[in-house]
């Protein structure tokens, strides 16, 4: 996960508290999405960024996951995400993110 983004997540969490932060992902790659989930839950596995050794335990979801999709107005979702849903390997992303989330819980 990008070091700059790690810092932003850390700062926001410190500012608003763990209970008020959810990390929502929009990246196109399943493996990279899984890494972000791991980083914001259990710490930076690459031991490179500000989240190294920091277990924020933040809830992290990808926008194509049903838990998130069902919360969004279908028209709005289609207008913004519909196209990319066709392009991305949605099943792989959900599978990876779910697995990592379980592992880190």
């Amino acid at each position: 996960m990008d070091l700059e983004n790690q810092k932003r997540v850390l700062d926001l969490t410190e500012q608003h508290g763990k209970d008020n932060v959810l990390v929502l992902l929009g990246g196109g790659d399943a493996e990279a999405s899984g890494l972000v989930v791991e980083t914001v839950m259990a710490g930076d596995p690459a031991y490179a960024g500000p989240l190294t050794g920091v277990q924020l335990g933040l809830p992290a979801y990808h926008i194509v996951e049903p838990e998130i999709k069902s919360e969004i107005d279908p028209g709005l979702y289609d207008e913004n995400i519909g196209m990319m849903e066709m392009v991305l390997d949605v099943a792989a992303i959900i599978g990876e993110v779910t697995t990592i989330r379980k592992q880190c819980s």
Partner: peptide, 13 residues
């Protein structure tokens, strides 16, 4: 290819 997929997906939309 990723770009072409997006264009094709837009054509579907």
């Amino acid at each position: 290819l990723q770009n072409l997929k997006m264009i094709a997906a837009m054509a579907v939309m």
